[in-house]
């Protein structure tokens, strides 16, 4: 008769617990080393007086105090007028941009135009996207001068780059079923676009336009820096006069206006892409 000698549970537990080998991490190590080297070289070689960094936080707090402790509300009327000018630039830029980019994005989508035209348009879109709008504005400056129109045209050109790209991606992403159905029923290409593509792609398009408008509102403030007018123009002038209380007021105006436009446009976009809320459908 053999008796079973029970193994003590503690030993069993300990011997079964084998910590798995760590996964090979040479790739992660290389990445860490490369990133560290790049960052150290950048810090070491950049032409900055690091000694100044010590007094920097104090300085910034002092300026923030100058700007926001007692903002100068006397100039609020002019600030709002200039903000309206910036928003107008953004709006006109978006509208011109969408009018130009809508047909172009169909030509850049697969199935509507020959391949060379498609390639050329896509290249154009990506070149435009790589150039900052302020540089486009500098080039347009020679035609329309230092006017808000220059700003609007620069934003329009820049919008064509992004709207065109998002547009052809949305068109290529639609369900091909309805398109085939229109073709099978004998529809021409305009009819395919109107009844096969547009009903599906429309919410995306409208949402892109609104989003680009939000971007343009920010960008139009930037364009003021080269003197085409708007809130950015006013902000640079008062920064150069070092009237910090007015600068603080202007920054507050920019923040409030941008955040409100973002909120309205964001709500519209959600309504368009997600449809009516359940409560609304009940009524």
């Amino acid at each position: 008769m053999t008796t079973l000698t029970p193994t003590p549970p503690a030993t069993l537990g300990r011997s079964a617990l084998v910590v798995p080998a760590k996964p090979s991490s040479w790739r992660r190590l290389t990445a860490t080393i490369v990133v560290t080297v790049i960052v150290i070289v950048a810090f070491w070689s950049v032409d900055i007086n690091w000694a100044r960094l010590g007094s920097l936080p104090g300085e910034i707090v002092r300026y923030l105090w100058l700007m926001f402790a007692n903002p100068n509300w006397d100039k609020i009327g002019e600030a709002l007028l200039q903000t309206w000018r910036s928003v107008e630039m953004a709006w006109v830029g978006t509208v011109i941009g969408l009018v130009i980019s809508l047909p172009l994005s169909f030509l850049a989508a697969r199935g509507f135009a020959p391949a060379p035209a498609r390639g050329a348009l896509r290249l154009l879109f990506s070149v435009i996207r790589a150039v900052p709008e302020i540089i486009i504005a500098i080039a347009i400056l020679s035609v329309t001068g230092l006017t808000p129109l220059t700003g609007a045209l620069a934003l329009a050109v820049n919008s064509v780059g992004t709207l065109g790209k998002w547009g052809y991606e949305a068109i290529e992403g639609v369900d091909p079923g309805p398109i085939e159905a229109v073709r099978a029923a004998g529809g021409s290409t305009p009819e395919v676009i109107r009844w096969g593509v547009w009903p599906q792609a429309m919410p995306d398009f409208v949402s892109f336009w609104l989003y680009r408008f939000e971007i343009n509102v920010r960008a139009s403030a930037i364009l003021g820096l080269i003197g085409v007018g708007g809130i950015g123009d006013m902000l640079t002038s008062y920064t150069q006069y070092r009237e910090w209380s007015t600068v603080g007021m202007l920054l507050l105006v920019v923040v409030v206006v941008t955040m409100s436009i973002d909120a309205v446009s964001g709500a519209l976009r959600r309504r368009i892409t997600e449809g009516a809320s359940v409560r609304e459908l009940d009524r």
Binding site: R52, L56, E59, I60, Y63, I134, R218, A219, A221, I222, L225, G232, L235, T236, T239, Q240, R242, V247, L251, V254, V255, T258, M259, D262
Partner: peptide, 16 residues
């Protein structure tokens, strides 16, 4: 986030 980078830069240049 609602203030563009170039506006920060123009104010900061006057500061530092």
């Amino acid at each position: 986030r609602s203030i563009p980078d170039l506006l920060y830069a123009s104010v900061l240049v006057a500061m530092v």
